[in-house]
């Protein structure tokens, strides 16, 4: 186990949304890595080895996030890293682009945007375990 805070990678092409979500997670004592598109997300995922990845589905006006999520699943060194997907456009994960045998859906969470931060935090804690409460500025949603 790594010492210190757990690391979460957020991949989203909307800078404001990304910052807002990062702010929330940082306040809850996670280390946040930010990527603005799928390619950068994948690169940072391999480099930074996050404990959990959050990916927006619609990026650059297409469903780039689904490809990113699938690529993450195909990357051996990222095996077992939970991938959460977000979408404003869809109310559930669109199944038209998911290969039935890709096998990654079973483990992941889907959130519609805007994200219910309380639920997100609960799901993250469910995957990564309760964080130690160190920061004075921590805020419960």
């Amino acid at each position: 186990m790594k010492p210190g805070r757990k690391k979460i990678l957020i991949v989203d092409d909307d800078a404001d949304f990304l910052e807002a979500l990062a702010f929330f997670l940082e306040r809850n004592n996670y280390e946040v890595v930010k990527a603005h598109d799928g390619r950068e997300g994948l690169r940072l995922a391999k480099m930074q080895r996050p404990d959990l990845i959050i990916v927006d589905i619609m990026m650059n006006e297409r469903t780039e996030g689904l490809f990113t999520a699938q690529e993450i699943r195909r990357t051996p060194e990222l095996e077992g890293v939970p991938v959460f997907v977000l979408s404003a456009l869809y109310s559930k994960v669109p199944d038209f682009q998911i290969q039935p045998d890709s096998g990654w859906m079973a483990h992941d969470e889907f959130f519609s945007k805007p994200v219910d931060t309380a639920e997100l935090l609960a799901k993250i804690r469910g995957r990564l375990g309760q964080e130690k409460r160190e920061t004075a500025g921590e805020v419960e949603p």
Partner: peptide
């Protein structure tokens, strides 16, 4: 969505 998330902050 961005506005909502910012207001949340």
């Amino acid at each position: 969505v961005a506005v909502h998330q910012c207001l949340d902050v």
